[in-house]
Simulated assay, not measured.
Amino acid sequence: MFVTKYRRKAFTNEMLTRCEEIMREVCADFEADLKQFNGEEDHVHLLVHYPPKAQLSKLVNSLKGVSARLLRKECDAHVHRYLWGGHFWSGSYFAGSCGGEPLTVVKQYIENHKRPVG
């Protein structure tokens, strides 16, 4: 899970769709698979299957860095109303591991988030 800086409600539905596209591309660069993605106005959830050779910290750094740069570039007027000072994401993140049956529960949790309208 990644949250926007200061939990500002910066995301629109269109931005979440674009964020998912960006994060899928970044995952592919790491030979990882973005299995599930969803979010709300102030955060996103990802379910990622990544190979053991990929370092989680580098994957997260790329996911956050690339998405922040491209979303700011493509949606600058909107983003600037909510986030300033060059920051997009909070410096922290949550990552947990799962497998087997709990995976279904995690997918359901991510699917059930209410995306912003518009």
Rank of each mutant, 00 (worst) to 15 (best):
E20T: 02
V26D: 08
L47D: 07
T4Y: 10
E74N: 07
Q55N: 15
F37H: 05
E21L: 14
L59P: 03
E40D: 15
T12H: 14
I22P: 06
Y93V: 10
N112V: 05
T4A: 09
H78N: 01
M15R: 04
V117M: 14
R24Y: 08
F94D: 01
E25M: 14
R24T: 15
T4R: 08
D33W: 05
D33T: 12
T4C: 09
L56A: 15
V60Y: 12
M1W: 06
V26P: 06
K53E: 13
E31N: 09
E25H: 14
H87E: 14
L34P: 08
N13M: 06
H78E: 08
F30A: 02
R7S: 13
E101K: 09
D42E: 00
E40P: 05
Q36P: 01
A54C: 13
V60G: 11
H87F: 11
V44T: 09
D29S: 10
S67H: 01
G86N: 07
S67V: 02
E111V: 08
F2S: 13
R24I: 14
V66H: 03
V44G: 05
C19K: 14
V66D: 03
E31I: 04
H113Q: 12
D42Y: 00
L34D: 05
D42G: 00
F30S: 01
F88E: 07
F88I: 10
T12C: 11
Q108E: 11
V66W: 08
E14Q: 15
L103R: 02
L59D: 04
S62D: 10
V60A: 12
E20H: 01
A68V: 05
C19P: 12
M23Q: 05
R69K: 15
R72Y: 10
E20K: 07
H78A: 03
C27L: 02
F37I: 02
A28G: 14
E20Q: 03
R72V: 13
L16M: 01
T12D: 13
L70F: 09
S97T: 14
K5F: 12
A32Q: 05
E14V: 09
S67G: 03
C98I: 05
L103M: 03
Y50W: 10
S62L: 06
E31G: 04
K9C: 14
Y109M: 05
N61M: 15
C75A: 15
G100N: 11
W89A: 02
H49E: 15
L71H: 02
N61Q: 13
V106G: 00
E101D: 06
N112S: 08
G86I: 04
C27A: 06
Y50G: 11
F37E: 02
G85M: 00
K73G: 08
V3L: 08
N38E: 02
Q36R: 09
C75T: 15
